[in-house]
């Protein structure tokens, strides 16, 4: 029994040691592979609310229910505030505010593809993954439907197919992963924007571009790029002429949402200390008990001899 447990512990310690090592090396590869993450800069001052991004999204993501293009020309949808849901990964809203010229303000809502995504951190099976190219991808095969991601997301983006009784999935913007990574083209929403309010590119270059735009047109933009630092940065970033709160973008700190939880969790298991400490303690207890036992037995024997 003792031998068995010892063997198991050895094995477990060895395995987890290897695991930690391999994880570390994997991370090193990801950060050194030279993949610069993609992003999208949403310049809301150019958005005219034509809903062509919604159309482009629907046409690109073949697993969404098909809609005809006239359905996306209906401007009456702006009368109500909408959120991305299981059937549409992106929506445009006309916001209850006007810009400096008195024109209506529109803003696109979709998954922000955070640099440190809370959904991926909360996902207990790794169905949501942050890819080195930027998109946060979803694997329906791994998903167990716990919906922790929906609770974790600071932008309340992941939607659930409640209407699907047998094979419901979590649904959110895919960033047209296949298209941008394997085909090198732009996401559907960006490619279909007639006014090029959306710019697709390397995230670092987009930040540069955003600040250059602000510097050149002080009168046009608020001096802030939403998503540059918010919750540790997002892949979709926004420029605006009006306060970002009016754009339906929540005020966020610069700390990544999963920072605290991950710190605790990862801290606890860092270097395999707690299990080693626990089993070490147990081992000490066992050894001391055993010593006592041996002494007691020896004493008994002595007694017996005597």
């Amino acid at each position: 029994m003792t031998v068995n447990r010892r063997a198991f512990l050895k094995l477990a310690a060895g395995a987890s040691g290897t695991l930690v090592a391999s994880r570390a090396s994997a991370n090193a590869v990801a950060s050194n592979s030279g993949v610069e993450p993609f992003g999208v800069l949403v310049d809301t001052t150019f958005c005219i609310g034509c809903r062509k991004c919604e159309l482009g999204c629907n046409q690109n993501n073949r697993d969404l229910p098909r809609r005809d293009s006239p359905q996306f020309e209906d401007k009456r949808v702006f009368d109500t505030h909408r959120r991305p849901d299981a059937t549409s990964y992106t929506v445009i809203n006309r916001l209850p505010t006007v810009d400096t010229k008195g024109e209506p303000v529109f803003a696109k809502a979709q998954c922000m593809h955070c640099v440190h995504p809370a959904c991926a951190s909360a996902c207990i099976v790794g169905a949501l993954q942050k890819t080195p190219e930027g998109p946060v991808t979803y694997d329906a095969w791994k998903c167990i439907g716990c919906r922790y991601c929906m609770v974790a997301c600071p932008f309340q983006i992941p939607a659930y197919e409640y209407a699907n009784a047998l094979t419901p999935q979590v649904r959110k913007c895919t960033f047209c992963y296949e298209q941008i990574v394997t085909q090198g083209s732009r996401p559907g929403c960006v490619a279909n924007c007639p006014n090029e309010a959306l710019t697709f590119g390397k995230r670092s270059e987009l930040i540069e571009l955003a600040h250059a735009k602000i510097a050149t047109h002080r009168e046009r933009y608020i001096d802030h790029v939403y998503g540059e630092t918010e919750i540790g940065g997002t892949s979709f970033m926004y420029l605006s002429a009006v306060d970002f709160k009016a754009l339906d973008l929540p005020e966020q700190g610069d700390t990544p949402t999963p920072a605290l939880t991950e710190k605790i969790q990862h801290g606890v298991f860092k270097g395999f200390v707690p299990p080693v400490a626990l089993y070490g303690l147990l081992g000490l207890v066992y050894l001391s008990r055993r010593k006592e036992e041996v002494e007691n037995t020896a004493a008994d024997k002595d007694e017996h001899h005597e």
């Binding site: 150019f46 270059e205 987009l206 250059a212």
Partner: peptide
């Protein structure tokens, strides 16, 4: 894609 500050033809027209 190498010059993000310059819109494409569609963007230039519409803007």
């Amino acid at each position: 894609p190498t010059e993000l500050r310059q819109p494409g033809l569609k963007g230039a027209y519409h803007r």
